[in-house]
Amino acid sequence: MSKIAAIDLGTNSMRLMLCEVVGKKFRTKSKEVITTRIGKDMGHKGLLTEKAMAKNIEAIKYFKKRAEEYGAEKTIIFATSAIRDAANKDLFLERVKDETGLDIMVLNGEEEAEVGMLGASYGFEDENLLVIDVGGGSTELVLGSEDKILYSTSINAGAVRMTEKYVKSNPIQQSDIQELEKSLETLFSDALNQLKEKKIDKVLAIGGTATTAASIFHKARVYDWELIHNTILNKTFLDNLFETLKSMPLKERYNIKGLQKERADIIPAGIFIILYVLEKLNKEQVIISENDNLEGIIIKYGEVF
């Protein structure tokens, strides 16, 4: 048995997974999330702000302490879109190393796609799975079967990035939605044209947007990963949810069961991205997976699989 901790430093939130691995299987696991928004206000210069860096370093210290208390033999920390794109990422990585002793692994788009697939496909066998991972700064589309990647791409369109660019007010104006859709047409065109030619048995979605949509579906008062995992959401439900969210002032969204206050501003754009992909690929449903890049990073780099 091995005890391992993994920390995912995403654009919108930071997540910790503590798990026991026995015989190439996850025996127990728990996850914790803090909304840290490392990518907030990066602006045209693509710079991480001092406030965002300080907030995230404090969160890393807290998660490192949690891992030590758990008795983790190994702690893996990795970063995705916001750190990958930041002009001052080296400064941040050095500060994290100096203040916590941890070396952050910065995944490129291809690596992010691969670990997402490794995690999401855990438990599925001999099926072509399309995994949609809507993050804060980017969306990964990966088609594969277990550890075999058939197609993957990383697109700079995430829930935070698209909200900051196109959502000017809440309720959301139709003109903003049209501009958002026009942007997605440009960004996703090549990828979706290639995917249309391939066999897709099931569509899975991972990441905060996907699990939040499932949490709203279940009207969950407290987040429960076992309840969320393998939830099937029909496109009709997602369409109706988007229409409801876009028509609400931000504070009204706070009353929706299953929706964290911290995600209330960015969730419409995230759901719109999932809907856009489903629509273009003529798919009517998506399976929400709680197995994601945290499991994937351990499968790839934990040296226990």
Rank of each mutant, 00 (worst) to 15 (best):
L130D: 12
I132Y: 03
D133R: 02
D133K: 09
G135P: 07
G135S: 07
G136A: 08
G136Y: 01
G136V: 04
G137M: 03
T139E: 11
T139R: 01
E140W: 10
E140V: 11
E140G: 07
L141F: 10
L141Y: 02
L143Y: 09
G144K: 00
G144T: 05
G144N: 01
S145L: 00
E146Q: 14
D147Q: 10
D147A: 10
K148F: 14
Y151K: 03
T153Q: 05
S154Y: 10
S154W: 04
S154R: 03
S154D: 08
N156Y: 13
N156C: 08
N156R: 12
A157K: 09
G158I: 07
G158F: 09
A159P: 09
V160F: 10
V160R: 00
T163P: 06
E164G: 09
V167S: 08
K168G: 06
S169D: 14
N170V: 11
Q173A: 08
Q174S: 13
S175M: 13
D176V: 12
I177H: 03
Q178A: 15
Q178W: 06
L180I: 04
K182L: 15
L184Y: 06
T186E: 15
F188W: 07
S189T: 04
D190S: 13
D190N: 13
A191G: 11
A191H: 10
A191Q: 09
A191L: 14
L195C: 01
L195N: 11
E197W: 07
K198V: 02
K199S: 15
K199T: 15
I200C: 12
K202N: 13
V203R: 01
L204F: 15
A205N: 05
I206H: 05
G207L: 14
G208P: 03
G208L: 12
G208E: 00
T209P: 06
T209H: 05
A210E: 06
T212H: 00
T212V: 05
A213H: 05
S215N: 06
I216T: 05
K219P: 00
A220D: 14
R221E: 15
R221M: 12
V222D: 11
Y223D: 02
D224M: 01
W225L: 14
L227M: 13
I228T: 06
H229P: 05
H229W: 05
I232D: 03
I232E: 12
K235P: 01
F237L: 00
F237W: 01
L238F: 10
D239A: 02
L241R: 00
F242V: 13
E243H: 08
T244L: 15
T244P: 00
T244E: 11
T244Y: 02
L245C: 08
K246V: 13
K246W: 09
K246N: 06
S247Y: 05
M248N: 02
K251Q: 12
N255K: 14
N255D: 12
N255E: 13
K257L: 15
K257S: 11
K257V: 07
K257G: 07
G258P: 06
